[in-house]
Design a binder for these strands. Structure first.
Lengths: 149, 149
DNA sequence: CACCATATGTCAGACTTCTGACATGAGCAA
DNA sequence: TTGCTCATGTCAGAAGTCTGACATATGGTG
């Protein structure tokens, strides 16, 4: 019953393993971010804004892999708490470019260090070549999933 | 600003790419499972039960990468809707072994075929060797994340 | 110009998952 | 036996994310 032709053999499925790895990473990140009062999406948003100041709500949503509605909820909270600022109205169109405040930047520094340590730990025991080929493999999977042509 | 020493360069981060790939896979699976009225966790639960009948709620939770509380909510719904059966009381201890009903098995068949197609598509363009090394890389990451020693 | 497809920001409600908590049972050691 | 630790099932409430919907702005095309 455990490996009949109709079923998916989870122990050998790259999809299943992909989810397993992603979950392990998320849990490890939540573990170090929780003491800082931050969720993974919360951190992702700040990190994105540090790299590309002025990103809009929709751009941040795509970068953090959530819907723009979810990002909007988060962004309003970050704005209320003083981590992020947005102009009251759009200069052009409806796009509101977001910026980190000094407080946001400082908060990100602690988080970024913690997250970087998690990623370094994740890659422990892998050679540069192994990391490179894993990178290419994941890129290929993303491309195939998004463009099934 | 986009690549100062303090930040994480998301474009080169394996962690970020891992989340991207996992999200792409989840979205692709949701897309094919939605017409069947099934979520990814819902499907995962049925697939696990097909491979190992008699799994308990907690075992299913670990296998589907959710908490046992979340799996309990789902399992109660699956039981109510006739996809799964559990004994009214435990034969030994508190563990309630779950089983697929014929209806659950039939529902799984359609879903399993759809999900298998998604996974095949995801691996399109990758050689057997590339898949194998990706598998080892992900396994290594999971291990390092769970056991940071 | 008018029209249409696309993208954005936002609100509202529902769904899924999570954390916290409790009681119960198994396993092991003193 | 008693006590301790761990795992399990479950309930309740909170948090995060999602889908659906609407108004608005842009860009291209007739």
């Amino acid at each position: 019953m455990s490996k009949d032709g109709a079923g998916v053999d989870l122990d050998k499925s790259l999809g299943y393993l992909l989810k397993e790895a992603s979950t392990a990473l998320r849990i490890a990140m939540e573990e170090v971010l929780r003491p800082l009062g931050m969720t993974v999406t919360h951190y992702s948003c700040l990190e994105l804004l540090a790299q590309r100041p002025g990103m809009s709500n929709s751009e941040l949503a795509r970068g953090a892999f959530v819907t723009r509605q979810s990002m909007n909820v988060l962004l309003q909270a970050l704005e209320r708490d003083g981590y992020v600022t947005r102009p009251a109205e759009a200069a052009v169109g409806k796009v509101l470019p977001a910026q980190l405040t000094p407080r946001g930047r400082q908060s990100l520094e602690e988080a970024s260090a913690a997250v970087r340590a998690v990623e370094v730990g994740m890659l422990a025991g892998m050679t540069e070549n192994e990391q490179e080929s894993a990178f290419r493999a994941l890129r290929s999977m993303v491309h195939s999933l998004r463009d099934p042509a």
